[in-house]
Each structure stands twice: as C-alpha cells, then as structure tokens.
Design a protein around this nucleic acid. Sequence first.
DNA 1: CTGTTAGCGCCTTCAG
DNA 2: CTGAAGGCGCTAACAG
Lengths: 347, 347
Amino acid sequence: MRDSCLKTKRYSLSKRNSDRAGLREVAAAAGVSMMTVSRAIRGIEGVSDKKRAEILRVAKRLNYSPNLNARSLVAEASDLVGISLPTLYNDVFAGMLAGMRNTITNAGFATVLDTTNYDLDVELDWVQRVLSWRPAAMVLTGVHHHPELRDTLRQAEIPTLEIWDVTADPIDLCVGLDHRNAGLVAGNYARKLGYKRPAFVGAPRGIDLRAEKRVEGLRTAFDTHLPAERVDDPNSYAAGAEGVRRLLDRDPRPDVLFFLNDHLAFGGMMAAQAAGLDVPGDIGIVGFNALDLTTALPVALTTIQTPRRQIGVTGARNLLARIKGLSPDRTVQLPVELLQGATTRLQ
Amino acid sequence: MRDSCLKTKRYSLSKRNSDRAGLREVAAAAGVSMMTVSRAIRGIEGVSDKKRAEILRVAKRLNYSPNLNARSLVAEASDLVGISLPTLYNDVFAGMLAGMRNTITNAGFATVLDTTNYDLDVELDWVQRVLSWRPAAMVLTGVHHHPELRDTLRQAEIPTLEIWDVTADPIDLCVGLDHRNAGLVAGNYARKLGYKRPAFVGAPRGIDLRAEKRVEGLRTAFDTHLPAERVDDPNSYAAGAEGVRRLLDRDPRPDVLFFLNDHLAFGGMMAAQAAGLDVPGDIGIVGFNALDLTTALPVALTTIQTPRRQIGVTGARNLLARIKGLSPDRTVQLPVELLQGATTRLQ
DNA sequence: CTGTTAGCGCCTTCAG
DNA sequence: CTGAAGGCGCTAACAG
C-alpha cells in the first residue's frame, strides 16, 4: 500500500453505492458527455436527433431513472404538490381530490397527501415539513388555519390553494363555496315550506368551521333559536342516528332536521323511521352534499348539491396557472343548488 | 408578495435563493462550522450541550428549515413512503390508509399517495416515478401487478408492502386476507341456510382481481353455476341497484345475492325492495366489508367483516421493521368474520 | 468535541 | 450542436 493518493481513488470508487445507473453511466455507455445525456433525457434543444435517439435507447437499456432529489436540489424546487385534507373517510374530500388529481398529475406533478383530522396544529406541522421539500405548490382545506401558517407560506413564496371554503383574502388562491349562503339556501327553502321548529345535527362546535358557517346561515333564515345536537364522528352514519334520538326527546319536538352532511342525515332518517316517525309526514330531513348514496334511497333525500369535483378541477387549474407565473382569480366562489327530495314537504 | 412570487425564475442558479437560511447562514450567525450546525440540528452526538442550545436558538430565529432534497441526495434515500391505492372513493381503502398513516408518520416518514383506478399500467408508471425519489418504502394494493413491476422494485431494493390480498411469494412483504376463503365463508354460510340459486353483482371481470377470488370461493361453496351481473362503477350505490334489476329479470330468479361490496349490496337491497321483494323473505342479500353504513340500516346487512384498519396497522409496523433491516413475517394473513344480519335467513 | 475535505447526481453557464 | 467547469445544500469520513 503506497500512500494516501491511492486511498482517495478507492474511496471515490467505493462511494458510489448501488448499481443504479446515473447520468454518468449512460454517458459512458453512449460515448457522449453527461450534459448531452441530460439534454436528451429532458427533451431539451441542442442534441441532434440521431444522438438523442441513441441516448434514449441506451438509457432505457440501462434502466436509467433520474434522481429527482438531485434535480430538485439544483432547481430549488421539486415537482411535489402537498395536499392537506381533514379526512378521507368521506366521499366529499375524496371528490375534490379526484378533481384535482388528474389535472395536477397530467401537468407532471406528484401529490403528497396528509389528513389533519381538523386539527390546525397538525396542519401547520405538516406544512412546515412539506416546505422542506421545496414543493411546487400547496393545497389546504378551508380558509381557517393556525395563526402562523399564513406567514409561513407567504414567506416561502409557494403557490397555495385553499379549497372548499372561500374568503376575500386568501393566502394566495381559493376555490370553494359560500357556506353561510348554503345554510341560508337550505333554511329559506324549509322556512318557505312552513317548517317552524328547525334543529341541527353536526360535529362538536369548533371542529368543522365550514359547518358552523352553514349553521349561521340556517339561523339567519329562521331567525329563531336553533337547537343543535353535537355528535362525535361527523362521518359516521350511526352518529346521525344517535343525534336524532337525542333530539326527538326534546320538547317541543323539531319539525325539520338539518344535518352537517348526508352521512349523518341518512343515519338520522333511519333513526327517525325506527322511532315510528314518518318522513316527511312527521318530520323533515335536509342533508348536505348530495352524495351518491342518497340517490339510491327509496325516499330521495332533500339536500344541497355541492360542486366538489368542480372545485377540484377549477382549483387545480388555477393553481397550475399560478405555478406558471400567471395571475388567476384569487377567489372563485362556486354555486350550490338545493335538490328537492321527498324528505321534506309543504307543511 | 403575490405578484412577484413566481416571477422569480425557479431555475436561476446564479444566486443563492434570497432569504431562505441554509446551514451556512446558521453557522455564520452562530459562529461555528456547518458541520456542527448539522449535528446540532439532527440531534447527533458530538456537540456540547451549550453550543447545541445556542445553535438551535439561532436556527429558530433564522427560521431555518433543512433542505430535504439535499439530504436525500447524500443519503441516497428519502423519507417518503409511496402508497398506491385503487381508489379513495371507498371507505375500504381509506380505512387501511388510516391504519398505516399514524404508524408511518410517527416514525418520521411522509406519504406520497396515488390512486390507480385498478389500472396496472398506471400503477407501474407511478412506481417508476416514485422510485426517482429514492423512497424509503413502497406500499401497493393487491398482489397482482404489471409484469415488470416486481423486477423493478426488487432491483431498486426498496422495502415493499402489499396489502389487502396475500400470496406466499410477495415482492417483499404482504399483509391482507385470503379472498378466496372469504368467498368460501360467505358461500358456505348461505348454502347451509338452504339457498339454492346464488348470483353475484360486481365489477367487470378483470378489474378487481380480489373480487374474482371471492367469486371463485362462492362457486366452490355452491358447486353450481353462478350468474353474475357486472356493473361499471363498483363504488356506487346506484350501480348495485342497476345490477339487481337486471338479475331479477332472470329465470329462474336467484334466491340469494352476493355483492362485491357493501356499497353495491345496499343499492341492491333498495332495488329489491323497490321491486316489491321482501328481504330476506323473498331474497337474501350478502355484502362484503361491514362498512359503518350497514350498521345504520333498519335491516342489518349480512356481510363479511374485513379487518381493514388492522391490515394497515400490521402492514405499517412490518414495513417499518423492514426498513430498519429486520425480517418480519413476509406474509401475514388476517381472518375475516361473517356478520350474520337480517338480510338472510334459514330457507 | 469541532472543523476540514470531498463529494452525492444533476443542471446552469459558458466556451468551443 | 457538444462538452468542461463549477456549484446547489447537505453530510460521511477523516483529521485535529
């Protein structure tokens, strides 16, 4: 063994662990420089068609796959899009996600997903974490976040989309609906039918902020006290039933029940019927979201149709525009529609 | 900020990204070397408590956030875990996902999610893409994949977990259930009750391979022809109804209906009732999965309870062990249980 | 305990 | 059209 200069060589050789082919290996095999390979792979100008074809062939043979970590390091940006949703136990968020995914994926981005379970601290932690990846963009649910979140994101200068709810002053972009108005629409509809004693079944106060806005709309429509039962799991059918059982004990008994969502409404309707009540004869039921489920029911549920897929599609499109440096509308508010079913009727 | 946000070219490398503090900045501010900062940040041995505290303070003040792309580049591995599911429009996969997520997240990994819509080509493309991130592990649904997938993953030497289905020879690890046996259990149960003319409602053949195994089990149990109606969207309630309407036209009319899942079973039950049939008087209904929905029904659905959350938890735990270099059981098969409801009865 | 050195794989820049 | 040089932010390995 001679001295340290040999040692250096050996070191650098053994350092390349794994037999994974990199730009270097492809370049060597194709008899060109790394740069030429890089250009060929990325489909960039400046390589003769002949060489490009040859290089791509070699790359394929060597099973070359670019190291995105290295690329992102140089670019100071990855092609990850972080998406934060409250839950996936719910076709609602799955619907918006599906709407976004195609658009985002087709544009060459990958999605990193997390669920916060409606916890704003969890959301903040997750955002900070994703920022370490230098993501191309972020998607958050709702417009209410941890106090630090807004500054964190703006400082990082990451295009950000807030979905489902809207505000005049989003972090960056938002696409969603006016939940207070949605509550108002449902409330006005029921009031006009002649219902007098509304009640609400939903999640504990302070969990689902959008739902609280809808409740506010309901209150405005009825201009009256609105008894509310809060159940633990807003995505459970059984919880809706439980809420209704508790409400039916009240005096006076409500004549129309509004639910946080269709899940609860369905469970609630079952409970009302099980309690011997006729729907809509004895009591009205109004859901929210117009899930596929409700169309399969023997008695169609009166509910509010929310444009979930459309929110996803529009949101993703605007976000991509933002990434490209354009300036799409900062706030897009999509309309809701009341679907008149057979669970409510003129009083 | 908004307008200037993205006009800054992401690919301008000449200058260090504006305000974002790196190891270098923290080191300068703290009056130590980058390595010392690196060690302090990562909580690694070899820094005096005093210096460490000071460094952490400085890092926090500078709002330092490590560049994970750079770290992954050096480490030849990221802390991303790729998860591929067929769909999220379905509490089934959401349940397994929830089971995995806590474990994976608590161990310090982030999840990159994709849905394949049961398309094996999509799955392969996605896996190859995620491999470019040098993920810490991969999770796939089922044990049937694109022919190239197995080699691709093994060659990459990435710990891989297959969930939901089992096989004696997984790519790496698998945790799931024996779907053929699940079909057998359901079939035997119904046969013993005296049902003679079974039928099945499910997805088009070749889409959901697990479901086909269950059908095979059903056939074995009955040892008879098993008429099957294939509907387009297996996660739709309405599709179940459609399938049943078509089956009821057949002669002889089936006396018991097996469904791909509870979604379809629910829709199917509604359709049967709407057609004037009594359940279980005129016709039996058997679902699969034991979704929360079915517990809220006035007539409890006979179904197969699948340990979805448990699959996720066990799978994630084994996968983490694998990442640490241990050798957990390659194949874990979890039991299913028949839940006897009121939609079937002795004939 | 702390600092120095030498890259990780890729891409920008600039020179042929 | 092609290649050589240098660096992105971070860390393993090796001195002091």
